[in-house]
């Protein structure tokens, strides 16, 4: 039992430290949100990629960066209602 508890604690610690660490009940919404957030963070983090997008969209990079940041709030829409 103690082992199980420790595993549980370790998992929780991991989930706290690394966002996106899944668990047995990870929903599709959580999973896809996570991927999208990772993607949007990556677009901003790589300057050439952000530049590429800004040229394609005809907007200054700051605007595109804001767009990416904004999409990170709720990248795939609101969560579906949970049935109890």
């Amino acid at each position: 039992m103690a082992d199980k508890l420790r595993t549980q604690q370790q998992l929780e610690q991991l989930q706290n430290k690394y966002i996106g660490t899944g668990h047995a009940d990870t929903t599709k919404h959580e999973w896809t949100s996570n991927i999208q957030r990772d993607s949007y963070a990556s677009y901003q983090g790589h300057p050439p990629l952000l530049h590429y997008m800004s040229i394609g969209m005809g907007l200054p990079t700051e605007r595109v960066r804001m767009h990416c940041m904004e999409r990170m709030v709720l990248p795939v829409g609101v969560a579906p209602a949970v049935e109890d």
């Binding site: 966002i19 963070a41 990556s42 901003q44 983090g45």
Partner: peptide
């Protein structure tokens, strides 16, 4: 690497 939660941005 460039990650969401690693400071540097």
């Amino acid at each position: 690497g460039i990650r969401r939660t690693i400071p540097g941005q």
